[in-house]
């Protein structure tokens, strides 16, 4: 009995210590770009939070909407006030996993494909999101990159008729993060 107890404990500890193999960033970069007929809208957020749990593939993002910086102050105000309603919905999150995390070899620098799936929540609406990106392992860091489109209407963000032509109905999101091994 005592032997099984020890095994039991060992297994538990293994599971948890494996869970501690986490990679983290607080300064990730997300760009959004929309190419409307009259106006190109581009915004950068350089305070993106992300954690990758290498042992499980668990992958999360948290982005404060008010940290998006626009070229025009008025665009930024309208983005927060009229479109994403930052006071009501301050952050966008992604909770999901890298389904093929086992293919990524941390000991070997190089490019790896990453299949990411999970749920993205923005403007109070949660949608499934499945995208492909890349992980580049480089000197102990993981550089994650992805580019994909989202349809703003999916997140109940409405574009009024009179500015409908100025603003594209899909937005291109570019993710660029450098994950460092978390110290814990």
């Amino acid at each position: 009995m005592s032997k099984s107890c020890i095994i039991f404990l060992l297994v538990f500890m293994t599971a948890f210590s494996a869970g501690a193999q986490k990679y983290i960033t607080k300064t990730g970069h997300i760009k959004f770009y929309s190419d409307g007929q009259l106006e190109k809208i581009e915004a950068h957020n350089r305070q993106v939070n992300s954690v990758l749990d290498f042992s499980t593939g668990g992958f999360v993002f948290k982005v404060l909407m008010k940290s998006f910086e626009f070229e025009k102050a008025l665009m930024q105000e309208h983005f927060n006030e009229n479109y994403v309603e930052s006071d009501k919905y301050p952050a966008a999150t992604f909770v999901g996993k890298v389904t093929n995390i086992k293919d990524v070899n941390l000991l070997k620098d190089g490019m790896y494909d990453a299949n990411v799936e999970g749920k993205m929540t923005m403007h109070g609406v949660t949608k499934d999101l499945t995208e492909k990106g890349t992980f580049e392992v480089k000197q102990g860091k993981i550089i994650g990159k992805a580019k994909f489109n989202i349809v703003v209407a999916d997140y109940k963000i409405t574009i009024p008729g009179n500015v409908g032509n100025n603003i594209s109905k899909t937005i291109e999101i570019t993710v660029d993060i450098t994950l460092d091994k978390a110290n814990m």
Partner: peptide, 29 residues
């Protein structure tokens, strides 16, 4: 017992996994 414990531990760690990761971000904010 070993198998049960292993399965149990895996379940716990994956279920914890993603939500925990988010709370890990929130803790550091």
């Amino acid at each position: 017992l070993f198998l049960l414990a292993f399965a149990g531990a895996m379940c716990v760690s994956t279920a914890r996994g993603q939500d925990d990761l988010l709370s890990m971000i929130e803790k550091g904010e």
